[in-house]
């Protein structure tokens, strides 16, 4: 059954289409959301309710000249935006959209996602360094220290989930939570996990916002301090690829949160599980991410690092211990 050549081709096209539509239209959603929160209409000229705005943006970005300023490291400068996109799209291969929509249900898919997430960090580091611009270098140094710091509590929280489900396969973790919201990891009744799992959920959600470099943690492109951070020297599609990579990382983060904590494709009342519930969950999470970005002001670097090293890491370590105790005792 697996040997058919059409299955990989259909999944390849489907994943590319999903990634492209999301990368384009999340930009529109964000501008609409920002407009709503700041009491202005947002994009509205191109097409009904501005719905053709992403298309216009895409044409604009693609027809602009790709400037390579003097003094940059040419090869790395051109390759970095591509590296920003590759891990984000590749991650979608292991995401279980529903019980039977998943490109490859490999064991260790959780590990694969984190390995790919650490590759995305390289893109920011190399892009910022290759620009030969001091703002860009400061920005990539900030981005790396931030991502390294937030990877640790994120992995520790995932360890708790893996301990409960007994598997590193995202599909098995999702199947383990089927049958109504009281089976989801965040509200799990069995063994009394609901007493503390919301702490893990909050830690994971904060980390996923920080890992995707979104406000209030967007120290890497703090436009009031660093022009545009690592993207300062990029024009046209180089900039476009970085932006698309950022939106895709948000999508992957939301998918991971929905699968690990919110039961994947499960219906809250155990009736009609399917891909629609998964999409509903990830878009609610993505809306929350946009909402948080336009509601809270940017933090400072030392506060950001203190939050991770002094609060999130101790809490997630205790979370692992408490999870082990609950599994063994109850």
């Amino acid at each position: 059954m697996e040997t058919s050549i059409w299955r990989p081709i259909i999944y390849l096209v489907g994943i590319m289409a999903f990634a492209g539509v999301n990368a384009a239209y999340l930009g529109w959603c964000e501008r609409k959301g920002a407009g709503r929160i700041q009491r202005r209409p947002g994009p509205k000229e191109v097409g009904p309710a501005g719905l053709l705005q992403p298309l216009a943006d895409g044409i604009k970005l693609m027809t602009k000249q790709l400037l390579v300023p003097q003094g940059v490291d040419g090869i790395i400068f051109r390759v970095a935006p591509v590296i920003a996109m590759i891990p984000a799209i590749t991650s979608m291969v292991v995401i279980p959209f529903s019980g039977n929509i998943q490109a490859r249900a490999m064991e260790l898919s959780v590990l694969l996602l984190f390995a790919l997430a650490s590759l995305a960090m390289i893109a920011i580091l190399l892009g910022g360094w290759a620009s030969g611009n001091k703002y860009a270098i400061i920005s990539s140094a900030r981005a790396v220290s931030q991502n390294l710091a937030y990877e640790i509590p994120m992995l520790l929280t995932v360890i708790a989930i893996v301990m409960i489900s007994g598997s590193m396969n995202l599909r098995d973790i999702a199947i383990d939570q089927q049958g109504g919201f009281w089976h989801w990891n965040i509200f799990r009744f069995e063994n009394g996990h609901f007493l503390y799992m919301w702490v893990g959920f909050i830690i994971f959600f904060i980390c996923s916002i920080a890992e995707t470099n979104r406000a209030p943690f967007d120290m890497a492109e703090a436009e009031s301090e660093l022009v545009a951070g690592f993207m300062t020297e990029y024009s046209s599609m180089g900039f476009g690829l970085f932006m698309m990579g950022e939106y895709l990382n948000i999508v992957v983060g939301a998918c991971l949160t929905a699968t690990l904590f919110l039961g994947g494709w499960d219906c809250p009342f155990g009736q009609t599980p399917g891909v629609w519930w998964f999409l509903l969950k990830i878009y609610i999470l993505i809306f929350t991410v946009i909402w948080v970005r336009w509601t809270f002001p940017r933090t400072q670097v030392y506060r950001l690092l203190n939050l991770s090293w002094k609060i999130l890491i101790p809490f997630s370590l205790v979370n692992v211990l408490v999870t082990a105790a609950f599994i063994k005792v109850f």
Partner: peptide, 22 residues
């Protein structure tokens, strides 16, 4: 293989690059 990606590509090379930049 996953650990190689996570540790060597994701952490070790980035720390080396970080050290060089600083």
């Amino acid at each position: 293989a996953m650990m190689q990606l996570l540790i060597y590509v994701g952490a070790v090379s980035i720390l080396i690059a970080f050290g060089i930049m600083m």
